[in-house]
Amino acid sequence: MKIIVCIKQVPNTNEVKLDPIKGTLIRDGVPSIMNPDDKAGLEAALTLKERYGGEVNVVSMGPPQADAVLREAMAMGADKAYLVTDRAFGGADTLATSTTLAAAVKKMEYDLIITGRQAIDGDTAQVGPQLAEHLNIPNVSYAEKIDLDGKTLVVQRQYEDRYHTVRVQMPCLLTALGEMNKPRYMTPGGIFDAYRKREVTIVTRADLDVEDEKIGLKGSPTRVVQSFPKSLKAAGVKEAALEPEEAANFIMEKLKEKFIF
């Protein structure tokens, strides 16, 4: 089975702070990591390879420093790595990103594409499903468990309060949930080989068959009007020692106070 995993380099949002005046993210000095959902997707792909054979190749679109997440993927066990990078791709929203990725992936062989559900910096969850649309292949989002059955995949997908078990024909695209597994560690030798013996193939604008109007800032209809932090509200009141009836009355009183009820 030939699997492509799309991975994104993101700032480790656990360590991101907000600029109190501008309300924007302070990204300086924040370490970059492989997006957690993507890492789970990579782990799922590597497990499938171990079970059924094949190869796992990784693709990332981003600035030159995104090289690091591709090396990390190779140190975990990925076979080939591609970095889709060019100034022409800069300023892309999800649509332009998925268009660019689709143009890059079209040149590769695949039975299965796995992306993360969403990235922890943008949180849109759009790029994976959009990529499937561009490639005209079926998409199953929020995959938690993947098994191969002949030429189809049986995927357990999380759906709010229940699971769906879906049978899907390959080639197809799945978006993976960070909770689906515990990604393996790299190995020290894998890291050294990733940097000293292996290569990341660079894919630029010139390599892709795509119209200028559909990539980068030009190809991005999304406009961010404003970004702002969630305002902090006062801590709530804890009333732990109440009987159920008293508790109900207490809540009703509070709701009345706030004119909600």
Binding site: A68, R71, P188, A194
Partner: peptide, 9 residues
């Protein structure tokens, strides 16, 4: 970079 990544591991 390889030593830095090894440290992360």
């Amino acid at each position: 970079k390889e030593h830095e990544m090894a440290r992360t591991l």
